[in-house]
Nucleic acid binder design. Structure first.
Length: 558
RNA sequence: UGGCCGAUGGUGUAAUGGUAACACAGGACAUUUUGGUUGUCUUAUUCAGGGUUCGAGUCCUUGUCGGCCAACCA
């Protein structure tokens, strides 16, 4: 018997095509990519895409990927971020070849600047920031030369050295490339290469008071590392001309830049500035708040690395603007957790049910599979007794059409236990149903049912006497509009007021056997992960995502 | 009135001059001791006009629409 391996050949994305062509033409025998975060914030779902792209390329083709921190702006950067970034990349499932820092190249970069000055391709400018802006021109008007543009090489060398030595205050002088103030590409109008910042750097301390700009650090860092394919987002496309110019004038290793469109998720913000604001102004409880689209937040929420990688894989990569439905991300995590998560019964909004024909004070053990998708996960014991708890929404005094849960006279299966029939119910003075009275059907116990009765509905339940109260945090999307950037008001105006509800749930005893980070499927309710701070004394579960719910969908549309 | 980059179902990605495919979302049915899962079916004159060609989503051209570019941020 032959089991034919019919692996559907997935077509290459445009970056893979470029790499494959470069490999086939013999331009390279191996490729080198890099993931270049600035350590000024936590990694988010958008970064995951870039990580999967860069590391994915060298997984598919010969070569390796470096982690390089783009730490050229000391005032916003911090080692806290360095650590979280490394942790998140590893959690996602990737390992870099070398851990590198642009700041390691400050000496080399300084010498590159000297080379440019010596070649008459860079000059020290005394202009203020406003003056530089004023002479820059606009996209439709050419700029004008700075009055300091024609200093001699010697003068520039001396001034640049004095800049480095700390003889000038912040913002007083800059080093600029001498290119063309009338260039169509604004970035080529004598871009600033170095600026003065008397600031403490997280790695170089107070060794430097001049720091290179992105354009004078990124391309050269790529070149120093002989990165073959430097992949970045579309907004850097105009920088490519400058990237190439610097490499050409410095006559260094010609790394090449390729751009892809950043991935946008609806109902989500991934701007570092906005995320920082949410954290600093207390709209969320830190970078790892489970509502945050940060990798640390998603981890705490219960997202698995596999599901995030699968998501990145499914959305692909291209060069056009996009808005991806967050529902796809939810689909990915459901699909992964469906295979892995152990099932447990937890009642979130309890209603007491008394089984009137079941003896008082007796506990009977029932059994249920831990995961119907995975027989190897085994079965567990669940105590059953005279008083149980079910969800309020699982009983209706006057059942709606096609409602096949509990209602007067109706029968339902209690998952893993007996079929019960509703005989009566009790209301309080305000008309609220406080108790449902049922009788269980003899010989209908799960696994040994000889009654032949076919019921439409199966409910999750928990024995009242054995129920363990657990804190449950119900999360919903953080924003109530698809795209805050296309709305008129400040993005915080669109925060979803219902993004978090904390309730007490009543769990079957088996749930208590869990550790922080463990994921479970609460039957019929969704996937939940034990919070990082969950303890045996105070168990806390975060809802990762609800289950698909066709009944809720159908009732909504009515 | 500038330059650069884009445009394929509701969404995302394919089709590399030769039958518009896959996934998600939506809809229908079946299965089910989770209204979960699973299975089947279903949803597009490829932004518009013109051109090249036996043949165009793909090449050329014009237009329209969208994004990006004037931080001592990355």
């Amino acid at each position: 018997m032959f089991t034919e391996e019919k692996k559907e050949e997935k077509s290459l994305n445009f970056l893979e095509e470029i790499v494959e062509a470069d490999l086939q033409s013999g331009k390279y025998t191996q490729i080198i990519t890099r993931f270049p975060p600035e350590p000024n914030g936590y990694l988010h779902i958008g970064h995951a895409s870039s990580i999967c792209l860069n590391f994915g390329l060298t997984k598919k083709f010969p070569g390796y990927t470096n982690l390089r921190f783009d730490d050229t702006n000391p005032v916003t950067e911090d080692t806290e971020y360095v650590e979280s970034i490394k942790n998140d990349i590893r959690w996602l499932g990737f390992e870099w070849e070398h851990e590198l820092y642009a700041s390691d190249y400050f000496d080399i970069l300084y010498n590159f600047a000297l080379t440019l000055i010596t070649k008459g391709l860079a000059y020290v400018d005394d202009s203020t920031s406003d003056e530089i802006a004023a002479l820059k021109g606009t996209p439709t008007e050419p700029g004008k030369n700075s009055p300091f543009r024609d200093r001699t090489v010697e003068e520039n060398l001396v001034l640049f050295e004095r800049m480095k030595n700390g003889e000038f205050p912040d913002g007083s002088l800059t080093l600029r490339a001498k290119i063309d103030m009338a260039h169509m590409n604004m970035l080529m109008r004598d871009p600033i290469l170095y600026r003065i910042k008397h600031a403490h750097h997280h790695r170089t301390g107070n060794n430097w008071c001049i720091y290179p700009m992105y354009d004078f650090a990124h391309g050269q860092s790529d070149s120093i590392e002989t990165v073959t394919h430097s992949i970045c987002t579309l907004e850097f496309a105009p920088h490519r001309e400058l990237y190439d110019w610097i490499i050409e004038k410095l006559e260094i290793y010609p790394s090449r830049q390729y751009e892809f469109a950043r991935r946008n998720l609806n109902y989500t913000v991934t701007s570092k500035r906005k995320l920082l604001q949410l954290v600093q102004e207390g709209y969320v409880n830190g970078w790892d708040d489970p509502r945050m689209p940060t990798l640390s937040g998603m981890r705490r929420r219960g997202y698995t690395p596999e599901s995030i990688r699968d998501f990145c894989d499914r959305i692909g990569v291209a060069r056009r603007e996009n808005m991806i439905d967050v529902g796809l991300l939810e689909f990915c995590v459901r699909e992964d957790l469906n295979k892995k998560a152990l099932r447990r019964m937890v009642v979130l909004d309890p209603l007491k049910v008394v089984i009137t024909n079941f003896p008082e004070g007796v506990t009977e053990m029932c059994h249920s599979e831990n995961n119907p998708e995975d027989i190897a996960a085994g079965v567990r014991e669940i105590p059953f007794s005279r008083e149980i708890l079910i969800e309020k929404e699982d009983f209706m005094e006057i059942p709606a059409k096609k409602y096949f849960r509990l209602a007067p006279g109706k029968m339902v299966r209690l998952k893993g236990a007996y079929i019960i029939q509703c005989d009566d119910f009790v209301k309080n003075e305000s008309g609220e149903i406080t108790e449902v009275r049922c009788s269980f059907i003899e010989n209908s116990k799960s696994g040994q049912d000889t009654t032949g009765i076919n019921v439409k509905g199966t409910l999750h339940w928990v024995s009242a006497a054995h129920a363990a109260p657990v804190e449950i945090r119900l999360y919903d999307r953080l924003f109530s509009v698809e795209d805050v950037s296309s709305e008129e008001l400040d993005f915080k105006e669109y925060l979803n007021p219902d993004s978090l509800h904390v309730i007490t749930g009543y769990a079957e005893p088996a749930l208590l056997d869990s550790n922080p980070g463990d994921s479970f499927q609460f039957l019929r309710k969704g996937y939940f992960a034990a919070d990082a701070e969950s303890t045996a004394e105070k168990p806390v579960f975060n809802r990762t995502v609800t289950l698909r719910d066709n009944w809720a969908k159908a009732s909504e549309s009515k």
